[in-house]
Simulated scan of single mutants.
Amino acid sequence: MSDLAADLMDRLTNAFEAARDPVRAVGAAAYMRDQFPFLGLTSAVRRAQARMALKGLPAPGEADLRAVALACWAREEREFQLFACDYLTRHITIPGPAFLDTTAELITTRSWWDTVDPLATHVVAGLVRRHPPLTARMDEWATEENMWLVRTAILHQLLYGPATDTGRLFAYCTAQAGHRDFFVRKAIGWALRHYARTDPQAVRAFLTAHADHMSPLSVREAAKHL
């Protein structure tokens, strides 16, 4: 672990432990189906404690980002992984295209929507935007066995707006229209609904052409504001 990562993790541990709320932790774990233990920090408290821990530290390099992310992923309490998502998002202009491999490791480890979605819509999204050849990796992820990589491929353009590669978005949704998992079917609807803010006619036409092959959940979510 780099010196910066070690220092940050020590500070973060002390800051988070000082704000621990055992009662809230029980409810937070239950909300996540008891898959992860929590310290019981609200998002506001977690981010405030993180700001204290980061105060005075230099900007990280790519190796620091990887070290911090993996160290957070090694911790049991979910707040550490949520911090890592924020930290990577804040510094997304630093890593090169090879950092996508690190992101894939995070997406497929301790996987749940609360970390996968920010990694998809901010970290992966930022990497692909800055390094366009990575779109080929998104094509691969869109047909992966791992449902979280599929969800990431579908959602990575969520905030692109007019810059969305519509052909890719629609192709990913078509390829996974019959996916067995709720989280993929939900992602299809979410991605289409969001893109409808930019081009409602394109989404309406897509649903007209493909609704018979899509799950009711995906169609319902996609058409919610049309």
Rank of each mutant, 00 (worst) to 15 (best):
V123D: 05
D7A: 14
R78M: 12
P97K: 08
M52K: 15
W148S: 00
G96R: 04
V150H: 03
H131T: 04
A69Q: 10
A28V: 10
M214Y: 13
C173A: 10
S218T: 08
L134D: 02
V68E: 00
P133R: 04
T164D: 06
D10H: 15
R193H: 11
S43L: 13
Q81T: 08
R220C: 04
V45I: 12
A48V: 11
E79R: 00
E221Y: 11
A153E: 10
D117K: 09
R24H: 10
T198K: 03
A191K: 00
A59N: 09
D7W: 11
P118C: 11
N14S: 15
E17D: 15
S218I: 13
P95H: 00
D181L: 12
L158S: 05
S215H: 12
A5K: 13
L207G: 05
W113N: 05
F80H: 03
A223W: 09
V26E: 14
Y31K: 08
F206N: 05
V203G: 04
A209P: 04
W113T: 02
G27L: 09
A19Q: 08
L207F: 07
A136D: 12
A5P: 14
H179F: 03
A153F: 03
Q35G: 15
A223P: 06
Q49L: 05
R204Q: 15
I94H: 06
A74V: 04
V128H: 07
L155W: 02
E79W: 00
A53N: 04
R47S: 12
P95N: 01
F38H: 10
P58N: 08
I94P: 05
L119G: 06
C173I: 04
P95R: 00
A69S: 11
V116S: 06
E77F: 02
T135V: 15
F83W: 04
H156F: 12
R20P: 10
Q49E: 13
M138E: 06
S215V: 09
L41Q: 03
C85G: 04
L57M: 13
I92K: 05
H210V: 07
L65K: 01
A191C: 03
F16C: 02
A104G: 14
A142K: 01
S111E: 11
S43I: 13
C85N: 01
A84I: 02
H156W: 01
R137C: 07
S2D: 14
V124R: 10
A5T: 14
G126A: 06
Q176G: 02
A98M: 06
G96F: 01
D3W: 13
T152Y: 05
F99W: 03
H91M: 07
A25K: 08
L226E: 09
S43F: 06
K186E: 09
Q35W: 10
L169D: 05
E17M: 15
L57G: 08
A211R: 14
Q176A: 07
L217Y: 09
R51N: 15
A50R: 00
V203E: 05
A18L: 14
W190Q: 00
P22R: 08
R204D: 13
C85R: 01
W113R: 01
S218L: 06
A142I: 07
I94W: 05
M52V: 15
C72A: 01
R129F: 13
G27T: 07
V124P: 02
L127A: 09
G126V: 06
V150M: 05
